[in-house]
Amino acid sequence: MSASGSKSVPSVGFLTVQEYTDLGLIGGYLILNAVGRPLEFHCTAPVRPNRAQEILYGPTLAPFLYGEQIGQTLVAKGKSRPMFVCTDVEPVLSVREFVSVPVVLITAGGDESNRQHRLDASHAVPPAPKSRKLCEFQLAHHQAAVAEDHARDRDNIVEQWRPHTEAVDLLEPFSRLREAIEEAQRGATRA
């Protein structure tokens, strides 16, 4: 994990992965300061698993792509070290195995947590296994969860976020992030 601290500004990372039927997966990583202003934005080129990966990774393909490949790469690109990284996509939680910063899943409710992320029919990424054990808790106005293997992150996140609870809605930046990914993708297509 290379997102070692270079700035002292309190910041939070937002990490998501968008699925495109014709392209594959595109990851986006947005770092905001404590009042919600953007500091950094990173996104990946489309990532598509090959057939061998699909067969051999089996149900672990999604965590591999979302966490190890995309998530790890993006978090490593950040120049600021955020207090923690939020994601709205459960398989991204697996990035925690590769980075030292806490990673938390933020959900508005049942609909969001049950979201399926799939590729096109011929390259379907199986949904993340439901056997992942999560440690759920309330963070500000949202349902949150960390991987059970990193349950200690919960207290750190709650403690660090307490002074900023009213400043930033932790779910809202994902809509910005997705729009920015779309815009970057359109820009890449035009170029």
Binding site: G27, E40, F41, H42, A45, Q69, K77, A184
Partner: peptide, 8 residues
Amino acid sequence: VKTYSYAF
């Protein structure tokens, strides 16, 4: 993975 980065 190829990435694109922007700082503000």
